[in-house]
Design a protein around this nucleic acid. Structure first.
Lengths: 221, 221
DNA sequence: ATAAAAATTTAGGCTTATCTAAAAAAATAT
DNA sequence: ATATTTTTTTAGATAAGCCTAAATTTTTAT
């Protein structure tokens, strides 16, 4: 019934990679890279997860999660994101520090702990990176965001999340004062390189590369 | 430099057992019983901990912690007790539920997390069971408590801790309304079986067996 | 269509932490 | 003081998760 720390991590990785591929088969190498391990180790594990009915796996054909595997992955993701909210809002960690610690906390086993934590945090629907928090049953809240680069001059919206989580990007956002909930207005779009000038909360004006703007998720007003 | 989850548990067990013996050597069997494992496994582990300079161990002669081993054990105990405070005060778990969950949380690795948690909780000096919380350097706050059974009729004090942590005892205390900080006054001592009648917070009168009173730690007013 | 390259799996080992069974040492009883 | 019992250690296995090297399958390029 219970899955190990390691098994949970593999399921989470397959979940994320498969989501990027819109549910398609994930390759052994892709999993190996994300798990920071070797392809041979992944093969072993996929065989094991397959026996436990957590993944669909045919050798040489890549892997996807079964319904059961998805449920397990979403439970881990729920815990990860709730702990991130806790670390940011209650312990005042910074945006870029929370991920690594949540990687450990997400494996603590106690249904009751998760539900009480959720309540303590006020049933948040999104984590500090703007990612949706699955509910107890694994359902994700509906999200209808646009990437910042799709907005036109003059349009406004709230920053609801980021689709790139590397610490240096997050640090950069924090430095220029962009946090979840910030209001963003497009001042100018540069046709040449698609970079944009934006106003944050009606005050500061800032310049963002196309690369950066693609990774900001906006709820248009 | 880092010690495994399992190593940390052995160190904690040796710390607690050795404290009961006022620093004396702990037997292999005692460790095995508390670790819920077999003596052979303990022998293996003691050899390993000894190589890492965490314990003093001569075969057949029992084991004690080195200074280094004590430091590691106290760091784990610090985390355990801080998490217990969090679970009780912030998430409203009951007294008897916190221990099992804290057994997992105590192994989360992040110095910064521990210090921020400590701050968030208001730098508590005692956990929900009344046990002292070591500081960052492993120092324990001074405690000068008496067991309830040593008090005379009429004496009063505050309940500061318990020296017996089994869930049924804790549940019993909760049921009769005894919590950390409760004021207790001795109304009557029965010479025959050393049972006592007490008043809790000046109100309710209650009867406690000698067995129970021995395990209540009181700060006399 | 076939050869070369890339991806994946298998085979065989290693480490950590566990176990059982047997051997050895220490403690206890006669 | 010696025999018996208890405690502890050693020896040899096992399971999880990882590794390298070799074999196999798939993909890509000619």
């Amino acid at each position: 019934m219970n899955n190990s720390f390691t098994e949970e991590n593999y399921l989470k990785i397959i979940y994320h990679l498969s989501a990027d591929l819109k549910g398609g088969e994930v390759s052994t190498n892709a999993v190996a890279e994300m798990a920071q391990t070797k392809a041979a180790s992944v093969s072993d594990m996929l065989k094991k997860l397959s026996e436990k009915k957590l993944v669909n796996y045919q050798k040489y054909q890549g892997v996807t999660l079964t319904i059961l595997g998805q449920t397990v992955a979403l439970k881990v993701i729920r815990k990860h994101r709730l702990w991130e909210v806790f670390l940011l809002e209650k312990l005042h960690f910074t945006w870029d520090e929370v991920h690594i610690i949540a990687e450990e906390l997400e494996h603590i086993n106690s249904e009751k702990l998760v539900e009480k934590l959720d309540e303590f945090l006020g049933f948040p629907r999104f984590d500090p990176h703007g990612d949706p928090i699955p509910d107890q049953t694994g359902k994700l809240p509906a999200t209808e965001y646009q990437n910042l680069n799709t907005l036109k001059v003059g349009q406004m919206g709230l920053l609801m999340g980021v689709s790139e989580h590397n610490p240096s990007f997050l640090k950069y956002l924090a430095k220029i004062g962009l946090t979840i909930g910030s209001q963003i207005q497009i001042i100018e779009v540069n046709e040449f390189d698609h970079s944009v000038s934006i106003k944050i909360n009606g005050e500061i004006e800032h310049f963002l590369s196309f690369e950066a703007s693609k990774n900001l998720l906006i709820m248009v007003n």
